[in-house]
Design a protein around this nucleic acid. Structure first.
Length: 306
DNA sequence: GAGCAGGTTTCCT
DNA sequence: AGGAAACCTGCT
């Protein structure tokens, strides 16, 4: 547990620049502090942390970006970035937060009028968002996720970035890219605490190294095709594939079924004893083409413990 | 200290 | 087909 490095090291040598002033996005994003927390730290992304001495402020890393986020008095999302990268930042943040997507309008299209459970969940977490993270690193993060809790996944990601990632700013490093991962031995990956997942990541990296443009093409493929390609990778089953497509490719048909959703669907919808594949099929049929958004509402509700 | 976790694969009926 | 067990690691 290292103290996070401050922007001014007081040595007279400008090691880093400071943070830009807070600003809202060109397309304003309305969100509550609670929903921002659920969005950044609820299992979609694994590299956002609360800034120690600044209540309500989050700091996150993706691709070669580092940013801070908070909610202002007008309930708008505001961001700040290191001065050196602030210029190219607004578009990157717009993409990351899918600012152009009106999630309230999408939620309105869900069948909440005939589904009281969904209605209650949507009301409890208005303006819940689905992030659009870089596809490759979303795949990496979720390859680490099997049978792991969020903090542990975050810890593994930090280790991989620290050991194998490119420097982004100050002491912050990016997650290693897939071409980079292909150069790393399974044993070195093991050193990040990956356990049996190290082999999956290693084998996936080797496989992708032979598939030209795979990473670039997949997000453009239709959902079913993309899902099929993903599950062909070692260590990627239906659940992880759906998470990667939902949080890293904005494919809202994806309906990840984890133990929380399994539990929620059993308890709320009476699907006792159903297997994950059956629940996934039910979800897509019942909730429609935005099933993934419905999943996120149910997931957040279930995690909130009700 | 045994048990378990936001799965997947493998190996059994 | 469908159901266990095994797989690593860190946390309770």
């Amino acid at each position: 547990m290292r103290a996070r490095k401050r922007e001014n090291n007081g040595s007279g040598v400008a090691k880093t620049t400071g943070w830009s002033p807070w600003q809202s996005l060109p397309t304003p994003v309305r969100i509550s502090p609670e929903v921002l927390a659920e969005t950044l730290a609820g299992g979609q992304a694994f590299r956002w942390k609360r800034v120690h001495d600044q209540p309500g402020v989050w700091q996150g890393v993706w691709a070669k970006m580092v940013a801070r986020a908070r909610v202002n008095e007008a309930c708008e999302l505001e961001w700040s970035a290191p001065e050196t990268m602030a210029a190219r930042f607004a578009p990157a943040l717009e993409t990351y937060f899918a600012a152009d997507v009106n999630f309230a309008a999408l939620a309105d299209q869900l069948p909440w009028r005939t589904d009281i459970i969904l209605e209650e969940r949507i009301r409890a977490q208005p303006a819940l968002r689905l992030l659009k993270q870089p596809f490759g690193e979303t795949l990496l993060a979720f390859l680490c996720s099997s049978a792991k809790r969020i903090p542990h996944i975050a810890q593994i990601c930090e280790k991989m970035a620290a050991r194998f990632g490119e420097p982004v700013w100050d002491d912050v490093k990016a997650l290693p890219t897939w071409p980079r991962l292909a150069e790393i031995s399974e044993q070195d990956l093991q050193g990040c605490g990956l356990g049996y997942r190290a082999r999956f990541i290693h084998d996936t990296a080797r496989l992708l190294a032979q598939e030209r443009d795979w990473e670039e093409r997949l997000p453009h493929a239709p959902y079913a095709q993309a899902h099929e390609w993903l599950t062909a990778l070692p260590g990627v089953g239906p659940k992880i594939a759906d998470c990667v497509l939902l949080f890293g490719a904005a494919k809202y048909e994806a309906f990840p079924v984890d133990t929380w959703i399994l539990q929620a669907m059993a308890k709320r919808y009476g699907l006792h004893g159903w297997r994950p594949a059956q629940v996934a099929q039910f979800g897509r049929a019942h909730f429609g083409p935005l099933a993934g958004l419905a999943q996120q509402f149910l997931f957040a509700g279930e995690r909130a413990g009700k």
